[in-house]
Write a protein that binds this DNA or RNA. Structure first.
Lengths: 170, 170
DNA sequence: CTGCTACCTCAAGCTTGGTTGAGGTCAAGT
DNA sequence: ACTTGACCTCAACCAAGCTTGAGGTAGCAG
């Protein structure tokens, strides 16, 4: 058995539930590293599993791989990361996560109001989060709703007219 | 002025903050519709702004465009949607949003524990959400973490060994 | 009539996060 | 020696959600 404390790519895949191709991909992106055998095969140290765990958790928080990579690169090189290292890293996402939860909650509350009034006026309802730049740091790629001007103003006041000036400002 | 209650694409873009190209895109995907002038230019009815508002909100909830499209297609054709219509639609995302908030909260709590122990053991920590299939319904495209087996088991028990059998199943 | 801007179409390109496939090697079992 | 399975590389492809660019039209001002 290859219980030599080193793992093959297949073993890592099986134990992590991450496809081999994804592991290659992560390696290409610098998220994990491997030693090569004489025959050019990858061998992973056990803490790679922890890296992968971190990657998966981070993805679920909604962090893009690039950011995860940057975070991981803060781990000590040539020393197996210890508890504290991982704790420090995990703590990084904590506030990110808090933010995202708060955003969604605001969105939900707004939406609830909106459901009540049915107007979908974004002045008063859901999207009315001016300065909500961190918003939509959603997973995947760009939703990037914020940077321009997040706010649509469909309904003026009553139901569905609204000609409240072309105050769109360039 | 084209205050004829119909809007040009540029006006809609300005008022919604959505790029003209994106509006074309939405139209191609069947999320919005337009009338054409004799000269083949698009003219939008005012409720289009509300549709766009709905689209943006939905995206922030993390709903993919295709799903949003399906939802929008439930709106009455050839009758301007009223409050109730919009309210019904918005309500659709309500539970979705609740789910996502709950997921993130669980993730946060798990992560908090994890920060304490620093082990990043996904048995006990953050990712240990078996059967969490709805998870990672994140925006953007696929994070699709769940369908296979979401759980990595990096650390056995102590710190960084863990050879708890190759119980990886299949 | 010229010129300008806003508009049109269609195709190609971009980013993220991978997967799929072709063509070839390594390592182990018989 | 041969076969099998796991592994290797590299390029191509996928889906979402757009943007960019080329080449052309519409419509208004002067």
């Amino acid at each position: 058995m290859s219980q030599n404390s080193e793992l093959t790519v297949g073993q890592v895949s099986a134990r992590s539930g991450v496809a081999v191709s994804a592991l290659h991909f992560y390696e290409a992106k610098g998220l994990i590293r491997s030693r090569r055998t004489a025959g050019n095969q990858r061998r992973y140290s056990r803490d790679t599993l922890r890296r992968i765990a971190f990657i998966r958790v981070s993805q679920r928080v909604g962090i893009p791989l690039k950011t995860i990579q940057r975070a991981l690169s803060a781990l000590p090189d040539e020393r197996t990361p210890n508890r504290e290292d991982w704790a420090r890293l995990s703590a990084l996402w904590r506030s990110e996560l808090d933010d995202r939860i708060r955003q969604l909650q605001r969105l939900r509350d707004g939406l609830t109001d909106c459901i009540g009034c049915g107007c979908l006026s974004l002045d008063r309802c859901a999207l009315a989060n001016p300065g909500d730049v961190l918003a939509s740091q959603g997973p995947g790629s760009r939703l990037m709703v914020a940077p321009r001007r997040d706010c649509v103003q469909p309904c003026g006041d009553g139901d569905e007219d609204g000609r409240e000036a072309e105050a769109v400002g360039a």
